[in-house]
């Protein structure tokens, strides 16, 4: 597959996943199910952009690690907030 064809295929997959995200926003799902599904979409979409558009697979390891960790942490925080909201409130409240 040529690099241009690979880029086009990645773009089409990203558009399809975006429409999937729109469907999730309209769905009756909520809570942890919605958070996990939305987080998975963010993880997959950001990975596709990082690998195919930013081409970080061939980049300096420090850049690759920082960007990769950042966009793995984002979906993880989405799920964590849905799972452990009260715990986060305790950690981030001043006084008792």
């Amino acid at each position: 597959m040529t690099p241009d064809k690979r880029l086009t295929r990645t773009w089409l997959v990203l558009l399809a996943l975006t429409l999937g995200g729109g469907f999730l926003g309209e769905s009756h799902y909520g809570g942890i199910v919605l958070a996990v599904a939305a987080a998975l979409l963010v993880a997959v979409k950001s990975r596709l952009v990082i690998v195919h558009f930013l081409e970080l697979n061939q980049a300096h390891p420090r850049i690759r690690r920082v960007v990769g960790t950042y966009f793995a942490a984002m979906p993880a925080l989405m799920v964590l907030t849905a799972l452990a909201g009260p715990q986060i409130v305790r950690w981030t409240s001043l006084g008792g």
Binding site: T18, G21, G22, L24, G25, G30, L34, A35, A38, A39, L41, V42, K45, S46, V49, I50, F53, L54, V67, F71, M74, M78
Partner: peptide
């Protein structure tokens, strides 16, 4: 410029579900 634009795109991919999808 491409790197900056893709990074700004990545940030939007994270913002989108936070405000428009998670309910």
């Amino acid at each position: 410029l491409g790197c900056y634009w893709h990074a700004t795109d990545l940030i939007w991919l994270a913002i989108f579900p936070l405000f428009y999808v998670l309910h």
